[in-house]
Design a protein around this nucleic acid. Structure first.
Lengths: 146, 146
DNA sequence: TGCGATTAGATTGTGTACAATATAATATCT
DNA sequence: AGATATTATATTGTACACAATCTAATCGCA
């Protein structure tokens, strides 16, 4: 077997799928004024508001180089507020604004629409989810828990 | 089920895994002077030299906005040459230099090392490859076959 | 053959993603 | 208590990725 043949690669399909996912989400998220990474950040915050930048990074495996500008833009859109923690001044706490909280209602349609779009792929995606998580763990998760 | 809960997302694990893969490849590819996307382009060319930018894009689901600068940098490194096709002047043909061809020898170790690194994840990755390819098809593949 | 439609790649603009580095704050050790 | 080590985030620099748009070349149709 030719280890350098594109069709024999195991990682490339993941890469290609991730990009396809991003492209598929974009028009729908654009209606909410969000990009896919921003949407992921909002998911984290809708789940637990007022967490640190570090915590968001740990959940999403993204570091401050990515998150700082991203959060700045979310703040500029009036969806979040960033403040320095009083307990530890190195920490940034990210809180949803009322508008940010309200956006959740509109956002509910996103996974529903995407789910419908890739309905026939869903069963296998459910099946591969755990393996993908394991892979992230094995390879090292990036973000601020490095 | 909360459709907006991060752990319930089916796409996020793919996104996270793709980024983890990129991070895992980077140090090794850096020794060859390549980035992961550049490495993918080289895979395509090692397989079939002298193809069009469009063909590379179709294989990798990347468009000219991404490929043009990427190929420019590969050309600057002396690994490829870009020429205008005589049959169709809109087309760019990308050919490996001798140095580009020679790099394949050093590149063989990359998949081997990565494979070793994620050995225990490999069986499931083999299993999910087809499903990931289907997903790319379903969502629309991007690149220049849009 | 001429003209409108389509295509290939370049370009512009925006938003990531991450390595490396810097600065200030906190933790740990002696 | 003081010094050193570590940590959180910002910043800098580089390389993507892709939508939108542009320009020149080619295709398809009347």
């Amino acid at each position: 077997m030719d280890v350098l043949r594109l069709d024999n690669q195991l990682c490339f399909p993941i890469y290609a799928a991730a990009h396809a996912i991003g492209r598929a989400y974009a028009p729908m998220l654009d209606e909410l004024g969000l990009t896919y990474p921003q949407y992921l950040v909002m998911l984290v915050l809708w789940e637990k508001d007022g967490v640190g930048l570090n915590d968001i990074g740990a959940r999403l495996h993204l570091d401050s180089g990515t998150l700082t500008p991203l959060l700045k833009r979310l703040e500029a859109q009036g969806l979040v507020e960033r403040t320095r923690s009083t307990e530890d001044e190195r920490r940034i706490v990210v809180a949803l604004t009322a508008e940010g909280k309200k956006l959740r209602q509109a956002a509910v349609k996103i996974p529903l629409k995407l789910g419908a779009k890739m309905a026939r792929a869903l069963p296998k995606m459910y099946a591969m989810r755990g393996a993908l998580r394991d892979l992230v763990k094995i390879l090292g998760s990036g973000g601020d828990d490095r």
